[in-house]
Design a protein around this nucleic acid. Sequence first.
DNA 1: GCCTAGCATTGGAACGATCAACAAGCGGGG
DNA 2: CCCCGCTTGTTGATCGTTCCAATGCTAGGC
Lengths: 352, 352
Amino acid sequence: MAQSSRGPAVRRARHEPPPTLATVADEAGVSRQTVSNALNNPELLRPETLTRVREVIERLGYSPNRAARQLRTRSSHLLGLRFEQAQEGTTNALMDRFLHSLVEEVSRTGHHVLLFSGDPEDPLDGYDDLLRSTAVDAFVVTDTYAGTPQAGFLQSRGAPFVAFGRPWDDPDATHAWVDVDGAHGARVATEHLREQGHQRIAWLGWDRSSRLGEDRRAGWKAAMAGSGEDLRSLSARIDDDLDAARLAAHRLLDEAGVTGFVCASDTLAIGVLHACAERDLRPGPDVGVVGFDDSLAAQVTWPGLSSVRQPLEEVAVQLVRVLHLVLAHKPIGERGLLLPPRLVVRRSSRRS
Amino acid sequence: MAQSSRGPAVRRARHEPPPTLATVADEAGVSRQTVSNALNNPELLRPETLTRVREVIERLGYSPNRAARQLRTRSSHLLGLRFEQAQEGTTNALMDRFLHSLVEEVSRTGHHVLLFSGDPEDPLDGYDDLLRSTAVDAFVVTDTYAGTPQAGFLQSRGAPFVAFGRPWDDPDATHAWVDVDGAHGARVATEHLREQGHQRIAWLGWDRSSRLGEDRRAGWKAAMAGSGEDLRSLSARIDDDLDAARLAAHRLLDEAGVTGFVCASDTLAIGVLHACAERDLRPGPDVGVVGFDDSLAAQVTWPGLSSVRQPLEEVAVQLVRVLHLVLAHKPIGERGLLLPPRLVVRRSSRRS
DNA sequence: GCCTAGCATTGGAACGATCAACAAGCGGGG
DNA sequence: CCCCGCTTGTTGATCGTTCCAATGCTAGGC
């Protein structure tokens, strides 16, 4: 068993209580506080004392009891994340990718991620309990898509948090946030299609009530500005449904002479691909299609679906960076941070 | 703001410390212990005392401090889960679905899920730290695909845990586990294709070293037993790669006269669909194809990919049930529990 | 009237860490 | 010679909860 890299080869008997500060102190012939300092303020110890204490710690396989430390310092080193299923416009795989990066990132500073759930009807459910029981140091709020009661609530409580997602409804919000610039992604996708020679490029997105969808649509609109096209006739707002997208694509192909599609999701984009197949149009050479989120489906669909990939790893890095500033009561530079996604080009959008 | 369902309308000033047992006790005119009993052993109190204490608790918005409780009772009400990215044979979306159910399920008993990460090279990394610092009550081990050093390690430590995944290498393992019966899933898929009139049904799976893959393959093999077919010529073991699957499908179609494919993953199955498209074979009427995991890709791929869907919600329920038995030192009935997956039939496997 | 049993409630100690204050040793300046 | 400051280390108190043993009180039996 590969033990070397993991620490001491301690084999405690089953259920024997783990060593405490006092155990280590006795064994090393120093006081409790000295052991504590060896861990938290090693520069206070004389080098030889330090090594002696560290030796004992290593030998006994001692780790400070988190509960006791938390009780005294009022810091649990836990970050709360309300874990919802399948939010609007985000496939499950997205959350998984983000979460992994987040866990990885917070572990660098000895923190962990605590997942909790709550009544889907009440976006605030769950936060309060953890707050009152001082179970977490801070929150990472991810479900801010439709209004953000969480932000206001947590701020009124004085609870530290950072949000993944903009405060759409409240431009004056003072909390820290990180988000992906969906408009930028859609703009890059649209420009890419224009470079491929497409002129009448349609937007296929969700209902107007979706802030996420409207943000992305704005990018398409910006890229199409000055094209002389009538944007109204090139835009369709539908449910995130394969078949709805297929029908909408047929209509846009028939009525608006569209040759390019920028879509708010991979599901919608694949609906367009289906429509193309039904008309013997070749995705790529004949019709340019770009989706959003770079899901597994985009990767395996024939002939390969170009898609806008969100920089979730970077989002996690930035969230954690800002979170540490917030926890240290340091000023955060920019209140909000918009990260640009990256276009992954596959054959569905390449002419040649 | 919907406050009613969430508890008391407490508005504490920013950073004012939350109330403690002593605060509540003073306010209610009883001792600390009585308040504690009101929470943990309400039957010990006289009804009128109980309601009085509860009123104060409600009014102050009191929740017991988790750290203090954990220190005293040595139970954190946290379950550790090492969160790896993309394990063999499982797409990210799977983990997300499972995790959500798990979080939901453990919350019923006031528990939470703590995610941690570890060096991908060392399957034991991370467990030891949490154990020594008594940060979690138990573990849910999910990455037991290739041998299970975790199980042995945790047992030697006397740490409570349940595994999602069989102890492949050690049939005598005594720990509790829950797993999905991949063989059953593949068998049902194969029988489904036979019912549709297919006779020469191929297996498209992973390398022999994959226990998960071989388990599923066994189900195909069992369903094909007695068919009189030469199974060896009907079986292909390849990487989990779209193109590898496409090529293998062409070969099986050419050389073995195959009309049905049972695949170890949706990626492989979609590779088969690509091969069909290249030969103008219609998935469904001409060739039956079934994948595994019911990913988003299976749902959106034309013409709809039949797929074996894992009962992850039920896995979570059972894991938590068993975990509570383990934590209570009660005997668990069956050491292991195999749950049958369900076949989701779409057009790729329907003749009509 | 006294003893016992049972009930409701109480006060002290403990969990294992950190914080605050202080003590011992030592060298240097007035 | 004394005082001061610096380094190094110690001791008691504390965080907020639950466990343990003991308390006051009432009712019942003899």
